[in-house]
Amino acid sequence: MADHSGHDHSKDKARCRALLGQLSLYVDGEAEKALCDEIERHIAECEDCRIVVDTLARTIKLYRDHGHVRLPGDARRRLYTALDISDYLDED
């Protein structure tokens, strides 16, 4: 598989696969220095893996920023009533 940079991906595919399992450690900043260096060397050469790393990080960020769904107001009122604490319901 040749990637966007024209780099022959198939030669390094074993490398890509080997590093794939470590990418979460890397984007979480939990990778050891040696692994970090190795991933950075690899993604400088391998555009596909660079994209995977960057879009993986962005995926996590999008869910962190937008993944919360809050309890709707009417459901909140029903909850406070069921728990007998509706006098503490702060409706703003």
């Binding site: 919360h68 809050r70 309890l71 909850l79 604490i85 503490y88």
Partner: peptide, 26 residues
């Protein structure tokens, strides 16, 4: 009750989000 209401204030949204994601049904 006031202390319990504080707990509900603090966690209702978070627990709802977890339950909603797991169940997929509001």
């Amino acid at each position: 009750r006031a202390a319990f209401a504080q707990v509900v204030d603090l966690y209702a949204d978070r627990l709802y989000n977890v339950a909603l994601k797991l169940l997929g049904d509001p």
